[in-house]
Design a binder for these strands. Structure first.
Length: 310
DNA sequence: ATCGGTACCTGCACGC
DNA sequence: TGCGTGCAGGTACCGA
């Protein structure tokens, strides 16, 4: 589910609630149900290999949360161990498609799909003492790593941090179709299906265009399109289509600003043509066939015969 | 290097 | 109403 803007929103909502707090305990509600529950936890806590889910609980118990930040689509909790004050670790959480991480005022699971609950210390009058992790489809992952771990380094640059010169150089070195490339976390970290489509629409570039073939002008538009889309989406609190909420349980509203994503058959907001859907890299891809032509750069719509947006 | 297909999961909308 | 089907924002792995 969550892409860069959603994870960023979750991180911002959690920061004031968890920073400086200690993890007193962790509960694994789905592991107690039956034998299958333990298998569920094993999958969520796959890396590094734990002998049993409870070993993860022992490892994390007592750690202090120094801060929480975003790395691509991952949430990263920087931790200081209880024993050996110098020992720093990272709790890496990827929410997959349907993962939720919310602060609740109760330790009771709120859904049959709640898999982990972290109890945080702190004054009782402050809300949000329990961090609930819920994941219906269970594509999410929790990893506990040394702070020096290489695990995060395999991802590409953050689209909000990269410079245009770096971005242009990356594009030139790749021949893949842009849509595939934008979904590749080793190329850029943080984009998913929604924001890849929305960025390409804003850049007026066809999703099947080849990276290395882009003109400098197109590369510039893509760079700006990605960053503008992400900034607007963060400002709107992300896109809530099915499951996503921030750390306080609030929905985002960028889904109302989508221009192509899941708008198949509806008129393009720019030219009125019907939005089309095609498959690229076996992912549904939405685009305007008129504004995002394959090949040569598209003319400005101002020069096109006036077509009313309905 | 790149791509398609498959796998991992549950829930939902849809047509019959 | 119930059932089967296809689809959904994630990544990883395989083989070509």
């Amino acid at each position: 589910m969550p892409e860069l803007p959603e994870v960023e929103t979750i991180v911002r909502s959690l920061q004031p609630l968890v920073t400086g707090r200690r993890i007193v305990d962790a509960e694994l509600p789905s592991s107690t149900a039956d034998g299958a529950g333990s298998a569920i936890l094993r999958r969520i806590l796959r890396e590094p290999a734990w002998r049993a889910p409870n070993d993860f609980v022992s490892a994390i118990r007592g750690a202090s949360i120094l801060g929480v930040r975003r790395h691509g689509k991952h949430l990263v909790f920087d931790l200081r161990s209880s024993n050996g004050a110098k020992y720093r670790r990272c709790l890496l959480i990827h929410l997959g498609m349907t993962g939720r991480l919310t602060c609740e005022e109760t330790p009771e699971p709120r859904s049959p799909h709640t898999h982990l609950i972290l109890s945080l210390d702190g004054s009782l009058d402050k809300s949000g003492r329990w961090l609930h992790y819920t994941d219906i489809r269970r594509f999410g992952r929790w990893q506990l790593l040394d702070a020096s771990s290489e695990a995060l380094r395999s991802l590409g640059p953050d689209p909000l941090e990269i410079t245009f010169a770096e971005f242009a150089a990356l594009l030139r070195s790749r021949r893949a179709m842009l849509k595939s490339l934008l979904l590749d976390q080793r190329f850029l970290r943080g984009l998913g299906n929604i924001y890849a489509d929305e960025s390409l629409f804003r850049a007026r570039i066809h999703p099947a265009a080849l990276a290395a073939r882009l003109t400098r002008e197109q590369a510039k538009r893509l760079y700006r399109g990605i960053r503008e889309t992400l900034r607007l989406a963060i400002a709107a609190g992300g896109s809530s289509i099915a499951n996503y909420v921030d750390g306080l349980g609030n929905s985002g509203y960028f889904q109302h600003e989508h221009r192509v994503y899941r708008r198949t058959g509806q008129p393009c907001v720019r030219c009125g043509s019907r939005i089309r859907k095609m498959l690229i890299a076996s992912r549904s891809t939405h685009f305007c066939p008129r504004c995002q032509r394959a090949g040569r750069p598209v003319r400005k719509t101002a020069s096109a015969p006036g077509r009313k947006v309905t």
